[in-house]
Design a protein around this nucleic acid. Sequence first.
DNA 1: TATGAATGAGAATTCATTCAT
DNA 2: GATGAATGAATTCTCATTCAT
Lengths: 193, 193, 193, 193
Amino acid sequence: MTAPPGRRRDSAKTRALLLQTARRRFARDGYSATTLRDIADEAGVNVALIGRYFESKEGLFEACLTAAVDELRRETGEVPLAEVHLVIADQAARIGPEGPPSQLLLLLRSSGDERADEIRRGVLRTSAERLAAATGNSPADPGTLLRAQMVLAASLGIVLLRSVGAMEPLQSADRDALAAPLRDLVAALLPGR
Amino acid sequence: MTAPPGRRRDSAKTRALLLQTARRRFARDGYSATTLRDIADEAGVNVALIGRYFESKEGLFEACLTAAVDELRRETGEVPLAEVHLVIADQAARIGPEGPPSQLLLLLRSSGDERADEIRRGVLRTSAERLAAATGNSPADPGTLLRAQMVLAASLGIVLLRSVGAMEPLQSADRDALAAPLRDLVAALLPGR
Amino acid sequence: MTAPPGRRRDSAKTRALLLQTARRRFARDGYSATTLRDIADEAGVNVALIGRYFESKEGLFEACLTAAVDELRRETGEVPLAEVHLVIADQAARIGPEGPPSQLLLLLRSSGDERADEIRRGVLRTSAERLAAATGNSPADPGTLLRAQMVLAASLGIVLLRSVGAMEPLQSADRDALAAPLRDLVAALLPGR
Amino acid sequence: MTAPPGRRRDSAKTRALLLQTARRRFARDGYSATTLRDIADEAGVNVALIGRYFESKEGLFEACLTAAVDELRRETGEVPLAEVHLVIADQAARIGPEGPPSQLLLLLRSSGDERADEIRRGVLRTSAERLAAATGNSPADPGTLLRAQMVLAASLGIVLLRSVGAMEPLQSADRDALAAPLRDLVAALLPGR
DNA sequence: TATGAATGAGAATTCATTCAT
DNA sequence: GATGAATGAATTCTCATTCAT
């Protein structure tokens, strides 16, 4: 009621806005090619607020990564093997010039910060492990794990190529167009029990 | 009678040394995270020589890209469909902490320079097209092209994950260990005629 | 209650200070012999602020030039022919080791920047034209214009020689000492109608 | 006879070529805006030769200045007052985009080197003194000296404005067109006995 | 809470100069 | 005598970060 009408004065909202913007920029352009001023300007807030809310550029990146990881966990909780290709198609399909930030791309961007890198690697590892587990084979079987990692790699590669641009028809294929070949790919690499 | 012991004085060799070092650093760390001083120091020469031989950082990057593209063309001239998985395994297997620079990784690094980006995209596009052509299907068939692009994406993803590190067993799988699942992957996506 | 004692924190004042310092240095030493660090140090502020307020070295130079031109226009609005020598004497007399920056000297310094050069040339041209017009002769008469340009040239030359130093008595002649010969000079070149 | 036909191997000629080129560039662009590579390239010889023949950039500049001074002395030995305006018109008329290097312009360019600056100032001082002496008045009379310095200043200003460009009709006035107003100017400032 | 001013470190690039052939 | 390779210092510019209001 006391807040001015035009101006935001909501710390939580400002923080979230910065986070969202940062996620898109970091994912799209990489860590070092993205400047804090870019992010702040695009978010329409003052640069110094990044320091206030996230301590530093690395802190902001870590926050982005954590947020992406959380969202990813929520979205891909327990996926049965038969639907894995659909989840991948889903993730890939949302990559686009103006879309929401992609969680997956961020997993491929390094800040050089060791802690952030460890988070990245941890997520990648457990993602592959969960995928391997979904096959019903022994979770420790190296063959299955290797193949699961390849499925993960393929997914990331597709996301990446879409983001690079200028690769038609991959670039603008929709979810369904992506799902069919992905089903074959998953089936070939992870035959299930 | 032979080369002087202490100091090099061979422009071609210096240039090549810089190029090789730059290729590895750019491929590993990306364009903007790599400083010219990094490259020069690792190559053991003065930074100013980069300007001398390559004009600018962008010029150096373009030279790296061109070199990578040339090498890639030479190595993957006309590959029959049945051997595609071997070539991919080959490329992926050479990724390692100390190995020679990977041509493929560089294709995923952008400098923001439009010309370099166009080279990158061109190579990616024609690579997928050659792959599609190798199936014997109509080269214009969008379904085949999409699947070829996915094979390419998967290859790049694997290379990328290996370079991220800490993904066992993918990380240290050798050529043969990679070849088997890759054969299945290629066969599933590109059934040939 | 008043301004803080130790540190300034006033963007307008800082900008003006940089501008003033830059005008003197550029005028005295020329564009390329003047470094941004020189200017910033003399102004007692951080170098990066130049980028903040003026974009680049060229931007700063252009700002100096524009400021000089404005001031010059204000000071020499409509001068009757009989007083031209006084205005020139005035401008020349203020040249000194520690005095305020001279607008005139700056008109002789080139930055190589085409836009700035065009400003310079424009001011020089119109100054001569106004001088020619003050004679009451036809403004298009090439003879009068040539002579007006010579008066301008003489004025600039005097300013320049004073700034070079070590030319006595010219060096330390005051306004009145300069005015007498200048009156003869103007009268000889521009006899009026 | 042993010298190769196409290639020059004549140290005196190379030195002279460098000197001539340097004089034009220094005069036209100023000391710090001129790079040694510019000069060497324009002269068609290797940069390192500048070091060999002139020690350093400052050495080269000093050599240019000395050469200009010598030439000037030779050309303007004992000029009777009645012909001063012709000599000035002569010097000014040779300024042009492609002409030979102007000795006068160089007198206005500073390298920051104290020795060179002293040479410059010395020449300027004695030139004015000789001019004053030509009037037949007492050489120590400050009024006459001041006026002689003004004539010198006017000459330099005209040369300078011609070199700045885009000042018509001054820019392309020929010797005779310049001579008439110059006669008036000299007569007005230095009435002779 | 938010803003804009100010700073210092580091980046690319230019350039005079020295070295080896 | 001449050339091209190599170097180190300096310059402009960018950017994350801190400070004052």
